[in-house]
Amino acid sequence: MKRIALALSALTLGAAALGVPAVVSAWGNTGHRMVGMAAVRALPDELPAFLRTPGAAAEVGELSREPDRTKGGGQPHDRERDTAHFIDMDDDGHVLNGQGLSIDALPVLKSEYDAALAAAGIDVDDAGYLPYAIMDGYQQLVRDFATWRVLNAAEARESDPGKRAWYREDRLRREALILRDMGYLSHYVGDGSQPLHTSIHYNGWGSYPNPEGFTNSRQTHGSFEGAFVRRTVRLDAVEAAMPAPRLDGFDLRLRVPAYLKASLAETIPFYRLEKAGGFVETDARGGTFATARLAAGAAELRDLTVLAWRASAEVSIGWPAVKVAEVEAGTADPWLAMIGED
């Protein structure tokens, strides 16, 4: 894949210059940890108590790095995962170029997205499919929370000791899965807050009209999101910069493109700041920019987590399916749905 190959080459060169290991990731380890930890630490009281602990925040922070740590598994593993970290849009919000899909007109299925790109002569490996990774992660979290709700309610009401013990064990398994799945969602949401993961200008401005004379250095991407963030950004500053929750009028297929377009809009400001020498430790402007983008990612993860929790109360889960609301109200027995009727 052209984008990933270029990023790997650039980061290897950049790391050699900085004397640090090469890492191909948005924000690097430090930034991804901050997004996950800040989001969890900001969750409101309506979320389950197991999530609102220092341990859960640390766990999600560590697991936020996992999609980068699993790279290099071979094919088809890498093909289906490496392109999930980005979507390269032109300055008008079209995938790669004017012939590509608009971010505001994404089809429902990724397979339809692939087909539309192919029809336009665009390779999905070059385009990326980050919006689908975020949407998929959110939907998985809704299912996780729905299962947890059922198990938690059933455990509290069950009078049979054997069944109650099983519900408890399965609830604990689900809590571990929720932390893992939140970590994965955190990673992709964090990727989406990094402007260079939303733009064709992802590592230097590239071979496009460049009237402002922006850099074409292949070290631009990696040096910003990795070592610079590690040296200049603090978790408490990210938390302080997080915008207020936006939880009304939620529509997943509108929310995700809007989020990615907001990041794309920061691409030119990034390059202007880079040209002005802002990304050095002695210039507060660079740290402020990075902090704001990490805070945007943390706030989006916080909001998606709350929205997933709320949505989980309205669905059915298990097989044969039971309604979460009925189990929580005590009007449905979920035993067969949870353990399996066979």
Score class of each variant (00 low, 15 high):
L264C: 01
L106E: 01
T305M: 10
A241F: 04
R33K: 12
R149A: 11
T288P: 09
M182S: 00
M37A: 09
G93L: 08
G340M: 03
E341I: 14
R272P: 03
A49T: 05
H77L: 15
K261M: 15
A39C: 07
E328V: 08
L18V: 10
A329E: 03
A26F: 01
P269Q: 12
E300H: 03
R33C: 02
R149I: 12
L13V: 08
G297K: 07
G100H: 02
T147K: 14
S25T: 08
E66A: 12
R149E: 14
G297L: 09
G128I: 11
A298V: 08
A84I: 04
D251M: 03
F228G: 02
M1L: 10
R149D: 06
E225A: 03
V124H: 09
A119H: 04
L47M: 15
I4V: 08
A115K: 14
R231I: 04
L179I: 12
E326P: 06
G36C: 06
D125F: 12
I122C: 09
R65D: 05
D125N: 15
W309S: 01
T305G: 10
L252I: 03
Y184H: 10
S199C: 07
G19S: 09
H201S: 08
G74C: 15
G277D: 03
A284Q: 08
L235E: 06
G226D: 06
V23Y: 04
D191R: 08
V233I: 07
G121V: 13
A296Y: 04
E112N: 15
A116S: 15
D88H: 14
E239S: 13
P243H: 12
E225D: 08
A290N: 12
G137R: 06
D90V: 06
R81M: 07
E212G: 07
P48H: 00
L172I: 11
L43I: 08
Y208T: 04
I200E: 13
P21K: 04
R174H: 01
L43A: 12
I317P: 05
P211R: 02
T147L: 15
S64K: 00
F224K: 00
M242Q: 09
I122R: 12
L13C: 08
L247P: 09
D88P: 03
